[in-house]
Amino acid sequence: MVKWIELTNFMCPACPFGGGSDWICNMDRLPVYLNEEGSMKCQFGSHTGPLINWTWNCGSDYHKGEFLTADFEGFTFAMSQAVQLTSRAGAEWVAALLHNIGKQYGK
């Protein structure tokens, strides 16, 4: 069974200036969740998909109002800053997530 973790205080993986943010779905304004398989969803699952297809906008000027996809390096850097994911989900969950994200990006 997969474990979904709410993305709170998570660095923007799509820009170099992204500070921590509590991510919400742009469509329904509900919290966004991530699981160890690399899938994202909004709170009730009405919007879901692989992390590689998700788009991000932290509000910095870098985005110019657009939602951008994250590359593998950007997302792994954001993960490295997200110590709370390890404390909330465990090291095995984070390791599985990184492995699955690598597969999505062909790494």
Rank of each mutant, 00 (worst) to 15 (best):
A78T: 07
I24Q: 09
T69M: 03
Q43C: 08
F17T: 13
K64F: 04
H99K: 13
G59R: 03
R29L: 05
A14C: 05
A91S: 15
L68T: 00
K103H: 08
T76S: 12
W93I: 04
T48Y: 01
G74L: 04
S39T: 02
Y33P: 07
V2L: 12
R88A: 14
D71F: 09
V83D: 13
G74C: 06
L98H: 08
Y62C: 06
S21C: 03
L30G: 01
Y105I: 07
M40V: 14
Q43Y: 11
S80R: 13
G74R: 02
W4R: 14
D22W: 11
S21D: 10
K3C: 02
G18V: 06
C58M: 04
E36C: 05
V94A: 09
P13Y: 11
C12N: 05
A70C: 03
G49T: 07
C42M: 09
L34R: 10
F44R: 09
D61Y: 11
V83K: 15
W56N: 02
R29F: 07
I5R: 13
M79Q: 04
L97N: 03
F67A: 02
T76Y: 08
P16F: 08
H47R: 08
G18Q: 04
C42L: 06
L7T: 05
K103G: 07
F75S: 07
I52Y: 04
L98F: 11
T69E: 03
W56K: 11
I52L: 12
S87T: 15
G38D: 02
R88Q: 15
G59C: 07
T69G: 12
F67V: 09
Q43I: 10
S21H: 07
L85R: 11
T86D: 15
N35C: 03
N26E: 09
W4C: 09
G19H: 07
R88P: 05
C58Y: 12
L7N: 01
A95N: 15
A82S: 14
F72S: 12
P31T: 04
M40N: 10
P31D: 09
E36H: 14
I24E: 13
N26Y: 11
N9A: 15
N57H: 05
E66V: 04
Y62R: 05
G49K: 12
I5V: 15
I5T: 05
S46Q: 12
H47W: 10
I101R: 01
W93N: 09
G90M: 06
S46Y: 11
K64V: 02
I24N: 12
G45L: 00
A82E: 01
Y105M: 06
V32A: 04
R88F: 08
W54V: 10
I5W: 12
F44E: 12
T55D: 10
S21V: 01
W23N: 06
K64C: 03
A82F: 12
M40S: 05
H99E: 14
C25H: 03
L98Y: 04
N26K: 08
M27V: 14
M11E: 13
D61N: 12
A95Y: 15
L30C: 14
N26R: 02
M1Q: 08
S80L: 05
T69K: 14
F72Q: 14
F77W: 11
G102I: 11
E6T: 03
D22R: 07
A78P: 07
Y62E: 03
M40Q: 02
